[in-house]
């Protein structure tokens, strides 16, 4: 086919796509600027998630993370698995081309020192984002993605041999990644196992006790200085997801860098 045919087909497809989206948005009654109330499902989550004794209580003020890891927990687990498979696939495609590289040519003293100074600050911020995932915006995936900025900086300034000497080795990272994904799965089926042993009803990725399933994780601790909010599974899953995503991204970037820069 000629390129003009390609262009005509693609423009037609694009216009059909745009029209479909427009019709779907207008006909299916999604919110426009004139709407003053959210749809009912959204209101159910907004009023239910942090209020005790309600339908979908998750012991956390963060509605988005609660829905991700509580109501849609198994879905998010599959999403993590897809990312895991993508990173394994990357390693497989790049197999046999790894070599540790010293400081890249052209990176001066200024870049090296600044990247070394900024990297720990980024890591601390990313850990804070992950640890407060059930309270403020953020969570395991976001924290892990911010963490990956620090190895990228070190890699650009110092080369991959520096990262290896700091302890970011490939086998360590891979095992951390596998451990993270396994722990997520274990946390998800933990209630199921306890329910089987005790002989009561339980679900996968169950966070707080429900009327039909009377077991759950620890939501908060009451102390004389105020509640310490843990959010049940949320804090555990955030930490494990942080581990898995941070190790996975570092591994992927390390593999892409150490498989050589220019043409061979």
């Amino acid at each position: 086919m000629k390129s003009s045919t390609h262009a005509a087909i693609s423009v037609t497809v694009a216009l059909i796509f745009a029209l479909t989206v427009a019709i779907a948005l207008i006909k299916l009654g999604f919110a426009g600027p004139w709407v003053t109330q959210n749809i009912n499902l959204a209101n159910m989550f907004l009023t239910g998630v942090p209020v005790p004794h309600s339908c979908c209580f998750s012991a956390s003020p963060e509605v988005v993370t609660s829905v991700i890891w509580d109501e849609r927990g198994i879905d998010t687990f599959y999403e993590t698995s897809v990312l895991f498979l993508a990173i394994i696939g990357t390693l497989y495609v790049l197999a046999g081309t790894f070599k540790a590289r010293p400081t890249p040519e052209g990176m001066t003293l200024i870049v090296r020192v600044i990247s070394k100074l900024v990297a720990p600050i980024i890591i601390v911020v990313s850990l804070s984002v992950a640890l407060h995932g059930h309270l403020t915006p953020g969570g395991g995936f976001q924290g892990g993605a911010i963490f990956a900025v620090a190895p990228v900086l070190l890699l650009a300034g110092w080369g991959s041999s520096k990262l290896l000497s700091l302890g970011f080795e490939r086998d360590t990272l891979l095992s951390l990644r596998v451990t993270g994904v396994l722990l997520i799965a274990l946390t998800g089926i933990g209630t199921l196992i306890i329910g089987l042993l005790k002989g009561v009803n339980a679900y996968v990725f169950l966070n707080q006790p429900k009327p039909q399933a009377p077991i759950g994780y620890l939501g908060w601790i009451s102390t004389p200085w105020g509640n310490i909010v843990l959010g049940g599974t949320l804090i555990l899953l955030n930490i494990f997801e942080f581990l898995a995503v941070a190790a996975g991204f570092t591994l992927a970037i390390l593999a892409v860098d150490s498989s050589g820069g220019g043409k061979e």
Binding site: P104, S115, I146, L153
Partner: peptide, 19 residues
């Protein structure tokens, strides 16, 4: 993360130009 991203883009474009 936005302020850190600026630096990364600078370094990598420079790396591309040099290599």
């Amino acid at each position: 993360p936005l302020s850190a991203w600026v630096f990364i883009l600078d370094i990598f474009v420079a790396k591309y130009l040099l290599e």
